[in-house]
Simulated scan of single mutants.
Amino acid sequence: MAEELRDILEAAARGVFPPADGGVTVVAQPGPRDAGVVAFTAHSVVFTDEDEGWVRATLGALGCDALAATMNARFLVALMERTGRTTDTIDVLLTGTPLAGRPSLALTEVADPGHPRVAAALRRRDDVRVWTADGGLLVLGRGVAGRLEAAVEVSEGARHRGLGRRLVTAARQLAGGETVWAQVSAGNARSLRAFQAAGYRPVGSEALLVRP
């Protein structure tokens, strides 16, 4: 059976990565919504329903650095033009193991599907749950290949108090025994520090291509 993106991600969450051989693995999209690239150390995974031959021929024609070819802007532009998709940014991909216990801060779950943050999350995730806290917000939902993804927001007036770290820690406690994934823009140093302080570890980078 051909390897699936979900298998690759689940292995990465356990610390088992593709060989650091400079290679590229091409797998089918896990569903019609999500396509893109995940780059691990010296090995990339392109998940797309486009022809694998086109992917490899395009990478070869661009002549990019083999270790980073799939994250090269020229390849990503070519893939977006080919698929009619767009991307926002290249993110750092992090994982957090589940934690026992209850969150240390008071959280109120938002049940209203019309809530602006719920509606925004549903464009990229399924089974979305949203909690509010004093000065912050936590989102959990199923994203790429069904993985459980966390996102947080901290209001300007509540920053520099450790709230972001407590929110992403709470995500690990609310995960029901699953690994929690997070995508953080590489330039968002504040958010990266919060996730790492809460025990998340970077496993690679990701460019997610979305339909217009």
Rank of each mutant, 00 (worst) to 15 (best):
D65L: 14
V118L: 01
W181E: 00
G176M: 15
V92K: 03
T169Y: 15
S191L: 10
D127N: 14
T58C: 15
T97W: 08
A39I: 03
A194C: 13
A73V: 04
R123H: 07
G84H: 11
A78F: 07
G187F: 11
V38T: 15
A111K: 15
A106Y: 00
T169P: 09
R161D: 11
R142A: 14
R165H: 12
G101Y: 14
Q29K: 15
V16I: 15
A150W: 01
R129Q: 10
C64Y: 02
G146E: 04
D134V: 09
M80Q: 13
L167Q: 09
G136F: 10
G187M: 12
P98M: 09
P18Q: 00
T132H: 10
L9W: 05
A133I: 10
E4R: 13
V154C: 05
G84D: 00
R85W: 00
V203R: 06
P116N: 14
V27S: 15
F195L: 09
P30R: 12
E206L: 09
A182D: 08
L62R: 06
Q183T: 02
E3K: 12
G101T: 08
F75A: 09
A175K: 04
G187N: 09
F40A: 06
L99D: 05
P212T: 02
D7V: 00
M1W: 03
D112E: 08
